[in-house]
Design a binder for these strands. Structure first.
Lengths: 209, 209
DNA sequence: TCAGAACCTGTCCAAAGGTACAATGTACGG
DNA sequence: CCGTACATTGTACCTTTGGACAGGTTCTGA
């Protein structure tokens, strides 16, 4: 498969050539769109010289053409990884990744996989769990809630006030409070803030401490 | 690489053999530990006949031995995928995946990748973003916060009360309130609940509506 | 049929949260 | 030196929240 490296410096061209003898390197960041438009394989985007603000946009631009985009960062970090994967890249590695690793990444990406450093991968999965739309096995306490209580809890999870909940469920504010008291008890939280966080699988102050 | 299929039925053995001529199939779910202990390659775990409650445990058991575990489900769904990936598997596909796909998955997994159906992959990344510990480029409003305000905001994001925040930062409750007012304004939220959610990148009631 | 659960509501009250108006001190760039 | 941004606190006041106490209905399973 074709390999296209987009980089401002070209310093690492040799290394890349070593990983992929037929690799192409485009040394112009100005027209990422143009460069990727012609690509038919994996696009490797060196973001080491980019401004923080333009990274996401550039990745999105490169990914827009359908080819898998692997981001190569100077100082890989979790925050950036998440942001750029979200912008459409399917890989995230160090600019100076060794040839063997580059080939591994290519293999994974070529076959529809997603490649990030192993430690990040774990984090990914763990974090995703927190925002699971169906917190099935995560929150055993949720099963204790009655239908009505669950409705109230979900509203709180989205930041609604008692008045809003009352209107939404067409009941009195008093009743909302009653449900809330029951919920707090069952979910073992002390107020609506902690409930909102718990509903979203986010550990709270007192949970940690 | 060695391929070990653990399945209760053995119906699909042919298909697997087609994908990997040298594939082994262990037709006993009882001793997943035993079966995987001997494995040296990829472990394919057929969970189609398992009880919902034991799926996660079985996956964890299989993964405990260090080999990459790919889960094969009868009716793949998001919730299950997340749960089982969290239990240690590195792949999640349909039990009846075609041989070509099986080989692709094997390729990805062998090289340290994570394989889930494309649509799930997207979801993964998107969801993870919400719980990013460092919501760097996600929340432009966060940059507007002063150092002190950020400290307060982070406490609220973990469910702390005004009193607790005051103690933690060694300031008056009054000052906490002052910071909070500024934060609400800058982050465009109306109370601490919405702030807590915003800090965790969770859309709120009023945001959606 | 009776107990219990779930649901709904009322009044009263205390605590927590939030805003308005106001002031003081500090640090820093023009 | 002055203006501006930041951090801090005070008083007063209103709103929201949450608990206590008390009571209704409806439905279901033993």
């Amino acid at each position: 498969m074709e390999q296209l490296f987009i980089t401002p410096s070209g310093d690492l061209k040799d290394r890349w050539q070593q990983a992929f003898p037929q690799a192409k390197a485009a040394v112009e960041v100005a027209s990422i769109g143009e460069a990727t438009a012609a690509a038919r394989g994996i696009v490797w985007l060196d973001i080491s010289q980019m401004d923080d603000s333009e990274k996401a946009a550039n990745v999105a631009a490169a990914a827009a053409f359908g080819c898998p985009v692997v981001v190569m960062a100077a100082t890989p970090n979790e925050g950036e990884a998440f942001a750029l994967m979200n912008s459409g890249s399917v890989g995230y590695c160090h600019v100076k990744a060794v040839p063997a690793q580059l080939r591994e990444i290519a293999l994974v990406v070529e076959h529809g996989g997603l490649w990030v450093p192993p430690e990040l991968m774990q984090r990914f999965v763990k974090l995703s769990l927190r925002v699971m739309p169906t917190p099935a096995p995560t929150q055993p306490e949720l099963n204790e809630l009655t239908a009505r209580e669950l409705m109230v809890a979900e509203q709180v999870a989205h930041g609604a006030s008692n008045r809003e909940i009352a209107e939404a469920l067409d009941i009195t504010e008093r009743t909302v409070k009653a449900h809330l008291s029951a919920i707090f008890e069952k979910m073992d939280v002390r107020d609506r803030v902690q409930l909102a966080l718990a509903m979203n699988n986010i550990p709270t102050y007192t949970t940690v401490n």
